[in-house]
């Protein structure tokens, strides 16, 4: 049996702080990739079922019954649902685990004690959640096409689509980290009901924002939800004939929201890590 020897001076190369932080960052990123890969179907079940059922009921069942026109599913709901998947998946896939890891299981401590600045642990969480949101949205596109029979397709607008989804997932991740580090474990169900449900339904995912001009107050309310701009930009990319907020406005609003919630997320993560 070989026992691990105590540190023998001089055998290990002395690493700079930057080098050790880079290695630690990649290692914790690899840990999250590994764990996400291992349990990706769990994540999909958790986050993709709600949008999928919404799509099925509103764009398939109600169309079959004649209550809703077929165009509603293709033009309004499917783009909205794809945007919602990016946003919601990244938000939930980071917020729920963070509440648990900080509150009950303390699992995160090992990564907080890795040789890298605490802010970088938050950045890694943000990066990982954004990736998960993007992947979920990209899966929702073909699944939606299967449910509806077809899906709008504009190859020349794919860069806008990807940019909108990337930014939407990033904003969701920022909000997720902020919630996940601010909400005490005992309050998790209450806060998710209070925050998630309004976010889902004021985000212009089931309706077009410009057409809300007959309900001015609701149009104003939805303008404060970053998800609105994600859904509008996705709609601009997928169904350009439907009235939508001008893409550059949506992108600027998403970039601003991403910056804001990245800042709040990193700050509240730092505060939570030090308590």
């Amino acid at each position: 049996m070989r026992t691990v020897a105590a540190r023998t001076a001089g055998t290990e190369p002395v690493r700079s702080v930057g080098d050790s932080a880079r290695r630690a960052f990649l290692a914790i990123l690899w840990r999250d990739l590994y764990v996400t890969g291992k349990e990706f179907w769990v994540l999909l079940v958790q986050v993709a079922l709600t949008p999928l059922f919404m799509l099925f009921i509103f764009a398939k069942v109600l169309v079959e019954q004649g209550s809703v026109s077929a165009a509603y599913g293709h033009n309004l709901l499917l783009p909205g649902i794809i945007a919602l998947s990016a946003f919601l998946t990244s938000l939930q896939s980071v917020a729920f685990p963070l509440v648990m890891e900080f509150g009950w299981t303390k699992e995160i401590e090992d990564r907080l004690l890795a040789p890298l600045p605490t802010d970088l642990v938050a950045v890694e969480k943000l990066l990982m959640a954004t990736m998960r949101g993007l992947i979920a949205a990209m899966l929702m596109y073909p699944i939606g096409a299967l449910v509806l029979g077809s899906a709008p397709w504009h190859p020349d607008r794919i860069p806008l689509l990807l940019l909108a989804l990337l930014l939407g997932a990033w904003v969701g991740a920022g909000i997720g980290i902020t919630i996940g580090t601010l909400v005490p474990p005992a309050r998790i169900s209450l806060m998710f009901g209070l925050i998630l449900t309004p976010l889902m339904f004021t985000g212009a995912t089931q309706y077009a924002w410009p057409l809300l001009d007959t309900m001015r107050w609701f149009q104003v309310v939805t303008a404060f939800n970053p998800l609105t701009y994600c859904a509008e930009a996705v709609r601009a990319a997928m169904v350009p004939t439907v009235p939508h907020i001008r893409p550059w406005i949506s992108i600027v609003a998403l970039v601003a929201s991403a910056a804001l919630f990245t800042a709040t997320g990193v700050l509240s993560f730092r505060k939570r890590a030090q308590s």
Binding site: A24, I28, E107, E109, D110, A114
Partner: peptide, 27 residues
């Protein structure tokens, strides 16, 4: 290195992976 008062093992990993990932964090 710290051994905390309460268990804070990474429950998404096996015991062996708890060791190897920790080592990877430390380069």
């Amino acid at each position: 290195a710290v051994v905390a008062q309460r268990p804070n093992l990474d429950r998404s990993l096996t015991p062996r992976q708890n060791l190897t990932f920790h080592a990877a964090y430390h380069g």
